[in-house]
Nucleic acid binder design. Structure first.
Lengths: 215, 215
DNA sequence: TCGTTTTCTGACCGTATGGTCAAGACGCAG
DNA sequence: CTGCGTCTTGACCATACGGTCAGAAAACGA
């Protein structure tokens, strides 16, 4: 590697630091605004204000509103897929599915905005991430269905339809993020406490694990 | 009743007929557009085109975009509450909850657009129907929780947390509407067939009813 | 200090949107 | 036909939005 190239790399790294910090600032603000207003209702001005930057600066880092939105959706999708690790490496459904429920409930708690953005995107027909649904998500789903079917064949759980079990897991865990406002309203207007989150996790796991005969 | 009043009533009835027909046309179009684009992304022009009416005509029947949206949300909320009847008048959880699942799955199938509008509204903090959540929904929820608790006390089902059971019912059944596009994509791009809908209903009921010890 | 690259930002632009309005069409009772 | 209330609609308006741009400022290596 010639010296000039190394210099360039260092310079790039430094530049990248500023860039990354601002991109993070913008992405955080965007995630929140997109979640609370939807793509159509979100404005670049609102995101800029929340990020504490002038609007023109947003367009310096993200050329268009769509590009910014795409990045937000991709980010949450990656977090979402990471929860799969809880699923793998488990020999029995109680461990695998129980761990998956815990992981996804934790995501709902820690990333409620991202979860809502994802939900809204899918509800509107996934105009931006349709290819992800057809490739990554489909592969992921097929793989887990095989795992669950294996447990059924091994007599470790009742012979339910694995696909609908997966849908139930997704639905139930995401509900605590997507409908968090409704849940909060029904909880005397207060967010769920630590104890209540534990109770929610335990309740979901209890019903589902017993429901599939793995309790 | 004086004759003049009768005449007025007939006239009103005729007028109302036209009015109701056009309102229905507009509301159907609006429900679809709001579901597919969100409130912010929806435009009066789009709704007008889908309804086959000039845009100015929409403003004759609904003064503002918000008024139109409010009506759409109220409509789905009423349908949604009607499913409660399946819940009442049941003496055991298998009948009551099983019937409720059937009813809500049917709503997801027949009113996917309304379901999505409702979901988006709640996800964005229920700016329009917050009062419904605090009054009607809260009362409804408290009532069903008492019913479920009664079943538990009578030993008809396992002692799970009724509130989280309700959330699971809502989440799972609405998922088939709100995430219908994702489900369709994972179903080789085709909508669920009659058989697949039956399978979904049966799977959901099987897991939940067994999960609460009422199978 | 100088030169270069990256970052920042106010001012600006074309367009699309929600909403208005006035004029007319239509239905209908007298 | 006439008069009256309801409905219809093209044209129009003010505003807000996404996006652009030129030039200033800052960062940084030499």
């Amino acid at each position: 590697m010639p010296p000039s190239a190394q210099v360039t790399r260092i310079k790039t790294a430094r530049r990248t630091e500023i860039r990354r910090e601002n991109e993070r600032l913008i992405l955080d603000a965007a995630e929140r605004v997109f979640a609370e207003a939807g793509f159509g209702g979100a404005t670049m001005q609102l995101i800029a204000d929340l990020a504490g930057l002038p609007k023109a600066n947003l367009h310096y880092y993200f050329p268009t509103k769509e590009a910014l939105y795409r990045r937000v959706v991709q980010n949450i999708f990656e977090i979402w897929l990471d929860a799969a690790s809880s699923f793998d490496g488990a020999d029995d459904p109680a461990t695998g599915i129980g761990g998956y429920i815990d992981a996804k409930m934790e995501i709902s708690r820690r990333h409620p905005f991202g979860s809502k953005v994802w939900a809204a995107e899918v509800m509107q027909g996934a105009p931006v991430i349709q290819d992800y649904l057809e490739t990554t998500l489909k592969d992921w789903t097929d793989g887990r269905i095989r795992v669950i079917q294996g447990w059924i064949d091994a007599g470790k759980m009742a012979p339910i339809n694995p696909r609908h079990l997966l849908y139930m897991l997704w639905a139930t865990t995401q509900h605590y993020a997507d409908f968090g406002h409704q849940i909060e309203t029904l909880n005397h207007g207060k967010p769920l406490s630590d104890r209540q989150w534990s109770d929610a996790k335990a309740s979901v796991k209890a019903i589902i694990l017993r429901g599939i005969g793995a309790a």
